[in-house]
Amino acid sequence: MNSNVWILTFADAISIATTLILATIGAILTERSGVINLGVEGILLMGAVTAFLVGDGTHNLWFALFMSILVGVAMAAVHAILTITLRANQIVAGLALVIFGTGLSQYVGKPVEGKSRPVTIQPMHLGKLSDIPIVGPILFGHDIFTYLTWVGALVCSLYLNRTRPGLVLRATGDAPATVDAQGVSVAMVRFVHTILGGALMGLAGGWFMLARGTAWSQAATTNGIGWIALSLVVFAAWRPLRAIAGAVLFGFTLQVPYTLQGQQINILPPEIVQMLPFVATLFVLVALSTPRARKLLGAPKMLGQPFVRDER
């Protein structure tokens, strides 16, 4: 078998990981504040279709991505209002967001369905670095967002662990009553981080459309990666840096089916290979469920619990 193919597969895995990292960090920030947002898949779809439509209309890459972020913010704001202000069930509200986002992206995307992407995020060429054999194409042939995302994960990690607001954020997820007693508004911390998370998810969808997606198709564009991102949060133990490693691993399982198909390697039927990322994710979840692993994970203790001062 051609070794170039596997170099390309690794490179693609790292590239796809960009979307997973963005969405996962978005979910981590949200969940660290104690809010669980299951709407990731819906926000990714809306981000993707927005990037496509705006790109189609303006041919301006940056404006298209900016609008994806705005749409992500808007959808996360709906979730925040429902779950924080109106204290709706977070699980059901997130699911409603997925259904709404799936429907709306399909509705507004109908006129452009099957059309190829209007603008493209171009990979960078990093001079000599990109020319190093094997390592060059795998690590140094990506677009600017891939590298920004890595930096973003690092910044996010520092924010969580080394800054005052990060400490407040972690406390809000673990012991909101304490934060409230300190005079900090729990609702405000949760609002800000849910919306920040939504912005990252929107960008994740927009980037995926313009960098990886070839044509808009509601059924095929994100194809469940929002749910994989949610599992990645558990895999990464709510820590942004670990999300990078997890995302590359999951990106690999997402990419392998296409490589095998492209190379016409028919060890397994394509439909069976397509199950691979989901089965792998499931296995990881199972492995992380053992009592020992759970101790090490450290999920936010009040995840999914609304905070009401009177009911404390």
């Binding site: 259904i99 709404f100 986002g101 429907g103 709306l104 399909q106 509705y107």
Partner: peptide, 14 residues
Amino acid sequence: PIAIAVVLQGSVLL
């Protein structure tokens, strides 16, 4: 587009 039905369903629930 038929997706308007899904948009309505999602909004009702929200």
